[in-house]
Design a protein around this nucleic acid. Structure first.
Length: 464
RNA sequence: UCCUCGAUAGCUCAACGGUAGAGCAACCGGCUGUUAACCGGUAGGUUGUAGGUUCGAAUCCUACUCGGGGAGCCA
């Protein structure tokens, strides 16, 4: 008979009541008694599992079924019956249970609470747990929601290069890409590694941002976005950093910093709303078992307007707060984690855009403000995660851009094409970058980035 | 990279100078509706690695590896 999946049974139970169904899945728990027993079966198509009842007198292999361990794969054929009195809406009374794949007794996932640290060591098996089943389905839906948001607004999806020769942006340490023999690389006259003999004829690395290339496409398509993997070789060991992560980078021509912030706010709200509507079981699990305040927090994000404050005002608020910070806030220095937390948790109690940072602590491409001291930059700070979005209006005035590049030591030759975007029909434009994993952390309440990436890559860790 | 805490049975932890213990999982048995099932029993450990102190080290000291929390950098 034709197999069905649990998602169909859950969504359209009425069609299957008192009829024979066949499902295949993995055993989450098995409780046998003298003449009957219960399997909890999860087939991956729905967050919830189905309960299978098996009886000695109906199954020829009752003895074997009673010993099927957690983690084993089976196919069950039986009658779907409603169980209005019980925890689950329906169950399957088995007529036949076939073992598809045995799980030996050393299967590491037990029907009990495990620590996240342990489950990271078995990252190939952890998607079979409730938490990771929820997190990774939410991740999938959130990715789709991102595309839906931009596509519905006419943004063009650009695949910016993964391998690039551009490491001048200053976004972080890069991973070198090379085919040279590390034991004996070719050397030039000065005894240095001769990268002109490397695969691309020059020094190359994995991308740390698709922004510069996205700007080129924005100045052709007007509204574009990238969404892809990004690599940073920073030796940072925190719950919020990974060496490989996914970044969303929209870029809009004929747009200023205000347009940029409107877009960012609308995007965050859209993704939250979409996931709440399309992953109710998964989100409810997060509300109940991951973070008790998550539901309230997400609801207030969707309903409220995000707060805005300039960097200069923020520093004044921090200085006048009476709060004792480890490092006092000072104009000209970047906000510390403790400052960001105070702003999001105490002052604004929600997401806040901090704008117009001192130009010396921001990237060279950000548009200089008329005060000569600040740039048209914005960071979106959110409770729990910190910096979720960083963006800016880009410097479109070629003379100011060249001057700034000279000041910070970036050669005009390397970024000749970036400068030509200003030379030929350059217009004001703006964009931002969102750390996709940080968005997932924010959505789920999961506090470590390693637990929202299927197989995380961090310093000293590249298993799987 | 810095500060700090930790690493003991498959998992979560206890023992804190005198030679290793519990709960869960596993295995065997019992139980006519369980759903973190329950009840009884069995088995399971050169205490992260390498040195050192000591009559004696899971316990004290040093280094290293890995992990948690915090910081810096950022998304």
């Amino acid at each position: 008979m034709e197999k069905t999946v649990v998602r169909q049974l859950m969504r359209d139970t009425g069609r299957y009541v008192n009829k024979e169904v066949a499902v295949s899945g993995w055993i989450r728990s098995n409780r046998d008694q003298k003449s009957f027993g219960f399997l909890t079966l999860n087939d991956g198509t729905h967050f919830n599992s189905v309960q299978v009842v098996y009886e000695r007198e109906l199954l020829s292999n009752y003895q074997e079924v009673a010993r099927y361990r957690v983690g084993s794969a089976v196919t069950v054929r039986g009658i779907l019956v409603e169980t209005p009195e019980a925890k689950q809406p329906f169950e399957i009374k088995a007529r036949e249970i076939v073992l598809e794949g045995e799980a030996p007794e050393d299967y590491p996932i037990q029907p009990k609470r495990h620590t996240r640290e342990f489950l990271r060591e078995v990252a190939h098996l952890r998607p079979r747990t409730n938490l990771f089943s929820a997190v990774f389905r939410i991740r999938s839906l959130a990715a789709f929601a991102v595309h839906k948001f931009f596509q519905e607004r006419g943004f063009v999806y650009v695949h910016t290069p993964i391998i690039t020769a551009n490491d001048a942006e200053g976004a972080g340490e890069v991973f070198r890409v090379t085919t040279l023999d590390p034991q004996s690389p070719p050397l030039n006259d000065r005894g240095e590694v001769d990268f002109t003999r490397d695969f691309f004829g020059r020094k190359t690395n994995l991308t740390v941002s698709g922004q510069l290339e996205a700007e080129a496409f924005a100045l052709a398509f007007r509204d574009v976005y990238t969404f892809g993997p990004t690599f940073r070789a920073e030796n940072s060991n925190t719950a919020r950093h990974a060496a490989e992560f996914w970044m969303i980078e929209p870029e809009m021509a004929f747009a200023d910093l205000q347009d940029d912030m409107h877009l960012a706010e609308a995007m965050i709200k859209h993704v939250i709303t979409y996931v709440l509507e399309n992953a109710p079981e998964e989100m409810n699990f997060c509300f109940r078992f991951v973070d008790k305040e998550l539901q309230q927090r997400l609801r207030s994000i969707v309903e409220q307007d995000f707060a805005h404050v300039t960097y200069t005002e923020a520093v004044k608020i921090l200085q006048g707060s009476g709060e004792r910070f480890e490092y006092p806030a000072e104009w000209g220095s970047d906000l510390k984690t403790e400052h960001e937390r105070y702003l999001t948790d105490k002052v604004f109690q929600g997401p806040v855009f901090v704008t117009d940072y001192p130009r010396d602590i921001k990237a060279f491409y950000m548009r200089q403000n008329d005060d000569g001291k600040t740039v048209a930059a914005m960071d979106l700070l959110v409770p729990g995660v910190g910096e979720l979005i960083g963006g800016s209006q880009r410097e479109e005035r070629i003379d100011l851009l060249e001057k700034r590049m000279a000041e910070v030591g970036i050669s005009k030759e390397d970024l000749w094409w970036y400068l030509e975007l200003r030379k030929y029909g350059g217009v004001k434009h703006a964009g931002f970058g969102v750390g996709f994993e940080r968005l997932i952390m924010y959505l789920t309440g999961v506090s470590n980035i390693r637990d929202v990436i299927p197989f995380p890559r961090t310093v000293n860790s590249c298993e799987f």
